[in-house]
Design a protein around this nucleic acid. Sequence first.
DNA 1: AATGAATGAGCATTCATTCAT
DNA 2: TATGAATGAATGCTCATTCAT
Lengths: 196, 196, 196, 196
Amino acid sequence: MQERAKITKAKILETAIKLFSESGFHGTRVDTVAAAAEVNKQRIYAYFRNKAGLFEAALEHVFEEVSLFPSKTLEKALRKPENLTPMLLADFMGLHDKYPYFWRMLAWANLNKDVSIDSLLDIISNQDKVIEEAFLSAQKKGCVKKDISFTAYLFNLMAISFFYHSNQKTLSKTFSSEIYTPAGREQLMKQLISLF
Amino acid sequence: MQERAKITKAKILETAIKLFSESGFHGTRVDTVAAAAEVNKQRIYAYFRNKAGLFEAALEHVFEEVSLFPSKTLEKALRKPENLTPMLLADFMGLHDKYPYFWRMLAWANLNKDVSIDSLLDIISNQDKVIEEAFLSAQKKGCVKKDISFTAYLFNLMAISFFYHSNQKTLSKTFSSEIYTPAGREQLMKQLISLF
Amino acid sequence: MQERAKITKAKILETAIKLFSESGFHGTRVDTVAAAAEVNKQRIYAYFRNKAGLFEAALEHVFEEVSLFPSKTLEKALRKPENLTPMLLADFMGLHDKYPYFWRMLAWANLNKDVSIDSLLDIISNQDKVIEEAFLSAQKKGCVKKDISFTAYLFNLMAISFFYHSNQKTLSKTFSSEIYTPAGREQLMKQLISLF
Amino acid sequence: MQERAKITKAKILETAIKLFSESGFHGTRVDTVAAAAEVNKQRIYAYFRNKAGLFEAALEHVFEEVSLFPSKTLEKALRKPENLTPMLLADFMGLHDKYPYFWRMLAWANLNKDVSIDSLLDIISNQDKVIEEAFLSAQKKGCVKKDISFTAYLFNLMAISFFYHSNQKTLSKTFSSEIYTPAGREQLMKQLISLF
DNA sequence: AATGAATGAGCATTCATTCAT
DNA sequence: TATGAATGAATGCTCATTCAT
C-alpha cells in the first residue's frame, strides 16, 4: 500500500471511530463518514469492504488503543501497594474521561447482535496479568481485603467506572446529579475505594 | 379511547419495547414494528406521533414496569438487616435476568443523543426512599459498613448488576467467561457482597 | 336533510372553499378540511362523495356567490353612461379584492386538467346580458369607443382585473412593484380606462 | 460535472418543466418525473436537492427561455412604429401558443404560497427596456395614444395574452367560445389593438 | 347523523453499494 | 489510487377512503 493510501485509510478509520462511537452502527451513514473524512466514498469500500467491515475495524482499533493506555500506575503501585485501588480506579475513570470512544464502542458492540467481537479476544487479556500481580502483592501486604478474588476486584472497579460514564444521561436525572459534579464524584470514589 | 384502540396501542407498545430493546432506535424499522405487532403502520403514527415518540413511550413504559418490580426484599430486609445487601443485589440481578428490556433500553437511551429522557424524571426516584430507610437501619445495626453513604452503596450495587448484564458479550470473551456460569456468578456475587 | 346536517354541510363547504382556494386541489388535505371545519371526516364523504366532489361543490358555490355580487353599478351606469367603464372596472377589481376565493378557484380550475367545469355553464352567463345593455347604451351615447364589440370590451376589463390580482406575486417582483401601491394602482386604472 | 451528468440533469429538468406545468407542484410526483425522464430517482435529489428545488429550477428555466424568446418584432417595429402594438401583441400571444409551459408555471407559482420566486428577479426585467424605447418612439410619432404610460401599455398587452390563454377552459364555457376560433381570436385582437 | 378506528397504496427522501472513467 | 455518477431497495411518514359502533 502506498503512503497516500495509508493516510487515506487512517483518516477514514479515525473519522469512523468518532462517528460510530457517537451514533452507533445504524445511526452512522457511510456518506457521512466519507464526507467527514474528506474522502471519496468508494475508498471506504476499497479499504474496509463494507460498512460492517469499517465498524469492526473501528472497534478493533479502539480496543488496541485502550490496551496501550499508559498505566504507569502499576509501577507506582508496586512501590506503594496501599495506593493500588485508588490509582487503578482513577486510571479507569480517567481512561473513560479522556477516551470516551472506548466505552461507547464497547456499549454499541455489546448491544448490537450483528457485531462480531471475535477479533477482540486477545487484545485486552494480556494486560490484566500485570495488574493481577500488583493486586496479589498488595493483598499479601494487607492493603486489600483478603477474602476477595482478583476477578471480583477488577470486575467491580471496571463496573464502577463503566457504569458511571455510560449511564450519565439517565443517572444524573433519575438517581443523583450530584455525583457528576467534581466534588460529588470525588466523594463517591473515596467511599467506593474504602470498600476494598 | 375505545377498547379496540387500547388493544391496538398496547400491541404496538409491547412490540416496540421488544424490538427497540433488541436493535435500538436506528436499528429498528417502523415497518417491522407494525408487521410484528400485526397492526397497520398508520396506527403507530396515530398513537405515538412518530418513531421517536414510540421510542420514548417504550422507554417510559419499561421504566414504569421496573418501578413496579416487586421487592418484597425490603420487608424481609427490615426484619433481617444482615441480609439487606445480598437480597438487594439478588433483586437487581434478578430484575435484569427476568426483564432484560430494561438495561438494554437504558443503554440505548444513554447512547443515543437524540433520545429525550425528560419523561423519566419522576418515575424511578420514589422507590429509592424506601430502600434508603432499610439501608440506614441496617447500617445502624452494623450490618453495613459505617463509612459509606447510601448513594455510593446503591450506586455500586446498580453498577455491578448493570455491568454484569450489559457487557456480557465482551466480558465473557475478554475478561472471564467463568463469571457467566451459575457457579462463577454466585461466587462473584458472594465476594462482592462481602465488601459492604 | 335535518337542520343539523345543513349546518354541518355548510361549515364543510365554507372551509373547503377557503382551503382549496388557498392551496388548490392537490395541496389541500381532506383531514385538514375536516379539522378546520371541526367536523368528522366521514361527514365530508357522506355529503360530497369524495374529495373531487367537494372541490366541485366548492367551485360551484364560489361561482354562484360571485354571480350574486351586487352590482348596483349598472343602475347607476344607466343614468350616468359616461361612468360605465370606471364603474365596471372598479367593480371587477373590487370583487377580486373582497372575494379572492373567486380568482384563485378560477385559476386552480383552469390549471387542473381533472376538474370538470360543466356545472358552471349557466351560472355566469346570465348576468352578462344586463351589462351588455348598459354597454350598448353607453356606446350609443358616445361614452365608449365605437369600433369595439361588447365581447372585446368585457374581455379586456376582465383580463385587467384578473391579471392584476392573479399575478401579483411575480409581477410585483419582475415587472413593477409600484402598481401594487394604492396610488400606483389608481393611476394604472385611470390610464387603462382612458383607452375605451 | 461530467458530460453524462449534464445529460441526466437536463433530462430531469425538461421532464420536470413538462410535468410541473401540467399538474403543478402538488399534483406532480417525484417518482413520475424520474420515470418519465428515465432517470434514477436519486439523481433528482443529487442535482436539485428536493422537490421544491426542482420546481424552482424548472420555473427559472422557463423564465430564462422566455427571456430569450426571439423578438425580431422590435427591429421591425422601429422601422414601422405604427405596427408596434399588433406586433407586440402577436408576439405575446404567440409566445403563449408556442410555449404554454410559461403561463402555466407562472400561474402555479403565483398560486402556490410555498414557492419562492426570488431567483426570477433579474431574469425578465432587462428585456423590457428595449421594448420601452420602441414604445416611446412610436408614441412620439403618434402611433400610440399619448395619455398612456409604458407600464399601463405593457400591462394591458400582457394581461390580454395571459388571460386569453390561462382562462380558456372557463372562458370558452361561460363567456364566449367564439373567441377561441381562429377567426374570433383575430377579430378580438384587432379590436383590442384599436384601443391603443 | 355522527364519530373514532382502521386500512393500503402512495409519497418524498435516503441508504449502502456498484459502475465508469 | 481516486472520484463523480448511478442504482434499487428501503425508510419514515401521509393520504384518501372505508369500517364498525
